[in-house]
Amino acid sequence: MTETTRPLLDVQDLTVAYGTLTAVRGVSLYVQPGEIVAVVGPNGAGKTTTLSAVAGLLRPRGGTIAFHGRSIDGEKPEDVVRRGIALVREGRHILTSLTVEENLLLGATCRPDREQVRRSLDEQFSRFPILAERRSQHAGYLSGGEQQQLAIARALMSSPQLLLLDEPSLGLAPRIVDGVFETIVALREDGLSILLVEQNATRAVEMSDRAYVMGTGRVTRSGTPEALGEGGGMAAEYLGLEPEVTP
């Protein structure tokens, strides 16, 4: 549909394996600038593996990953973040022995200009006021929802062009989940491109520009929410999932 612009992220025929177990086989997907793209599917479909490969945490066995048209597959995570891709992993992975502010500043490790980093910090504090209140507390004392805000804010501190979000709603109370989804929409309005992996398929597909449905390591369907079925609700029905408990 948008052959005119080059995709920001272009994943072609990606294959990722853990030892002899192939978790992702031949996945292709792309993200255009300014898009929210959702990847949904049941547990074990390879969604997290795909994101991890893009972020450099896993080395692909085959296929290519290009960002701005340049190949980034096989790059180290600390280099991928310098290219402008930030990943918020499932489970948030807050550094609990560091303060909220130290966590945030760590997110800006790749940025040399301290003045700009200061400004980013202030932006995060105005976007997530609770983090400003808790800035000098140890991050381990934050609630789950606050930690998710911190994880997103920390990723934004690297000033990314593409934000990868892995299960941002997992384990959060419904009211908090609303807040997280509102944040994602607001970030897109600020010009950020977002690749969102969610088990909460209905909501993820509804808020996305396009979505991919994955099952057992492959993309089984893709397209706009309309094309995928009644508001994406179909995607969920089709997969027979809906809030599933994950470890």
Partner: peptide, 12 residues
């Protein structure tokens, strides 16, 4: 505390 997370945030 968490080597992988540190690297993802840009720590070499």
């Amino acid at each position: 505390e968490d080597f992988t997370t540190a690297r993802m945030l840009g720590v070499r």
